[in-house]
Amino acid sequence: MAFKKTMFGAGTAALMLTAGWAQAQTVCYVTAADAHAYVTPANEAIDGRAAELGLEILSLSQNFDVQTGIEQMSTCIARGVDGIILWPLDPQAYIPGLARAQAADIPTILINSPMNEEADQFIVSFTGPDVYEEGEMAADSLNDAMGGAGSIVIIAGQAGNGTTIGRVGGFVDRLAEIGSGIEVLDTVNADFDQQKALVASRDLITRFGDEITGVYANDDTMARGFIDAWLEAKPDTPMPPIVGINGQKDAFESIRSGEMYSTIVQSPIEDGLLAINTMAEILAGNEVEARLPIPLTVVTSENVDMVEPAF
């Protein structure tokens, strides 16, 4: 061990000498995952735009594991990058890493998901959709569809995930706020996964049957799971109104065919572009807003042909 330390010490000295090299600025991007319907296009948008801007991207995938992400923050700091874009999967856990980055004078911004207020002092900006507002918009939309009364099931994302908390919280709070007569029969977690949503929906349909007069899914993938389960169980009964989020292509088709009532378009490409553009501003020494939202649009059968699907 002692030997190794000396080796590292000598290495550091050598590195100090060479550190003066002028190189392209490097941005560390700690993303949620490699393979995911929403995350992948956002990743691609960042990579593409960074190349145009002449920034080098160090892309690290957490694979939906917070622990991995915390460790990757350390890697970014050790690598001495010029900026960090973090996709947080937990509202709190990254704070010490953010503090470390700040101590090392590395500006950090959050993409897509919010963190708690305590994190604000350590980050420069948060770019991305307001997931709480999405929940509220979904509540309004479903309330319209159901005429303010009925009973629904909520198919939520991963338990404990910031997006899930925001989308469910905004929805439930909004229903209470507008005094809606809609009653929530049950909330199940299907982890943003189509197969899990399918299995959970089968059980919900068996259990509540025709009591279900509306559905709120935290994303379109899970809405698809419910639709498949309904078609399987009750092919002859009309589908209850379903509200999803994200604005995927196949959700647009479902809205056209009447299988879904509405979705909320939130473009992963916009999401990625806004983050990398903001980071470029910061690196150029410009001031940026602490909160930069991306536009959200509610899509129903009325405007489905006028809006571009998100992905």
Binding site: V199, R202, D203, T206, R207, G209, E232, A233
Partner: peptide, 17 residues
């Protein structure tokens, strides 16, 4: 305990899953 338990629909459900 559950009126819907003993229905063909539910059984098909369980077996498909």
């Amino acid at each position: 305990s559950s009126p819907v338990f003993l229905t063909t629909g539910n059984f098909v459900n369980v077996f498909t899953s």
